[in-house]
Design a protein around this nucleic acid. Structure first.
Lengths: 211, 211, 211, 211
DNA sequence: TATGAATGAGCATTCATTCAT
DNA sequence: CATGAATGAATGCTCATTCAT
């Protein structure tokens, strides 16, 4: 697992730090969702987190730390939920299908968070960005492994580069459900979208077509 | 063509307005690319446009107008270049392939612009947003028409909803080349990417598979 | 008559200067009435005067010149209308009554102008102020002369200082009708107001009471 | 007593708010006296109040709030000092004389404040204006009550409308001492002015004349 | 003379951050 | 640890004034 970027806190009590940062992330997400990170003030974040501006700064050093914490937390959640359904032992097309379905479902349920993260990463400093991007890579890697497993087990026939592309593909199609919702969600239900995407992805890539 | 949102200018001379706004957009894109819209100041924009802050405000009313102008201009450029290669009379798979290839090439050449637009649209006011989204819809529609033409001409076999999805697909894969460049462009050249995407898209969707 | 303060003009043609300044004053008064001098921009003044900002500055040197011109013009108008009814030969109580009545009428008709002048003089530079105040003194003097005439002719019995005070009194009561209109004009018609004021002023000051 | 218009403060401590606003009003009056409200900058106000621009804005929301606070405070002071000498039980001509004398004295001592208030009220927004005008009405009402008391007690013989006019009269003559000082205070001492005004006002209005 | 584009000093206001209590 | 008052650099925007055409 990626080593986290340290965010300075004046307070020593680790348990408290975690508790406060949890409140902070929850409060911040709501606000960022509504107004974007830049238009959200630290005072607002403090307030919606349930403590004072002074206290906020006991647990972070700069406003940007909040954004990092938020992004970090969202990735961890998405990833956490995604990993639950994957059977690392025995990769199969079904396994991949389930992973996709599950991933799309998570994205659907965490639409706002995904959106927030997507649109605000660029506001992270050069310092924090790599940590977050690494997390993204890790998520793509999850799909890559499944696909590679399928290839290895003979369920798909893809070159290595194609494996990577397909993983990206899936990852992006998931995000697409969130950040193109104004357009896609008028056309399809989540089920339809999942079915169609799965079908096309597998038609395009899987070995099934050759049967 | 979509009616443009009027951006107020104090200056009367239409030709001058266009010239100055061109300078402005060029200057602004460079800056926004580097620092994001929010971190870019109006004074910086004025300076990099080659005129004073006072002059800048002779051609816009608020800072946000700059962003709108930037987004608007980028869409127009992408669209303009895209439309050049399309043969509206006689839609064919080849035509679609060319459109995709061309679209990917445009995105590649305008990476920065595409990225800027993509990440900053959300900063547009509720007022300006629809105009820009409409432009996006129009671009997706371009692909939709080609695909629908192919279906009509018997080159593909898709239901209407699938046509739309495929159009979205293409559009997003193009953008993906820009906003996931840090990851994709390490793996593939533009040609590779284009070839693979085209292959998969057509394998997934086209009637060829049934032959 | 008070020597006017010179206001610099780049244009030479005196007739044109007068014409343009007339337009200017008319345009400016309307605007100042509505928004106050400070909130009125030179561009607005130019526009409502019927010429460009460039032309405006051909006839004045600074924005404040406009205010001076406006104040000057208003005083001249009030004074001009006031002097029409005064019979300088043969001062009498009746003459005074008529002057008061007429003055109040003028104030009533030029309420906005009086108000403008009254509230904006303080914005005049130390340079221009004396010229305007002098005009005010001149107006008070008009009443002073009438009253002094009445005293001389035996119609009133007042010491010199009382003469001045009464003149001020009348002058202020007139202005009061304009700048306390929100309160006074709800209570009285102009006629009532004039009658009452005249009655009280003369009861308080005139020799009639001793008869 | 008139309900005050709320002026937003970010600071919670009510005592502090009052203290800071006191500083603010004192600092602001000095400046406005000298340069007028519009030419006075918020930074100047902050500085002459003894705190930073940031702190200033912790206690107000807009520059105009300062003006409102100033006007409000001046009225309260004038009114407060005026009410001290009034014997509400037993209205008499003497009581009225004292009230006038006292009012004129207050105006004399607070000349600058009265002037400021007088010339700047019109700069108040449509929002704040009514609150200030109400205060003025209340002050006129104070005189009205005394006069009405005198009439009731048989010391004066006036119709209702005349009572109001007289009250206005007194109020305006007081203000006149402040805003026509450049002219009046060259001619009279405060005592002279008070004596003469009182004499004339009572000659003009009181029942004494009928004895 | 008339025009109006260009200029930039100046202003109100915000907000991240600190620090004394 | 928690609080919230204080700070002032930074920013968007305005507008009087100039000057080339």
């Amino acid at each position: 697992m990626t080593r986290k970027r340290e965010v300075h806190a004046s307070v020593k009590d680790q348990r408290l730090i975690e508790k406060r940062r949890d409140q902070m992330v929850k409060g911040a997400v709501t606000l960022i969702k509504k107004k974007g990170f830049h238009r959200t003030t630290t005072r607002e974040i403090a307030k919606s987190s349930g403590f004072s501006i002074g206290t906020l700064y006991e647990y972070i050093k700069t406003k940007e730390d909040v954004l990092y914490l938020v992004c970090d937390s969202i990735y961890d959640q998405v990833r956490g939920r995604l990993e639950k359904v994957i059977c690392k032992e025995n990769y199969s097309i079904d396994n991949l299908k389930q992973a996709i379905e599950n991933y799309f479902k998570v994205v659907d349920e965490m639409q706002d968070e995904v959106l927030v993260m997507y649109q605000e990463v660029k506001s992270l400093s050069k310092d924090a960005l790599p940590y977050v991007l690494k997390k993204e890579v890790e998520m793509v890697t999850i799909f890559e492994e499944i696909i590679a497993g399928c290839v290895k087990n003979g369920y798909m026939d893809l070159e290595e580069k194609e494996v990577e592309l397909l993983a990206h593909h899936i990852f992006v199609q998931g995000q697409m459900w969130a950040f193109r919702r104004w357009s896609l969600q008028k056309l399809y239900s989540l089920e339809e979208y999942t079915t169609m995407q799965t079908k096309f992805l597998l038609q395009g890539f899987s070995i099934e077509r050759q049967i």
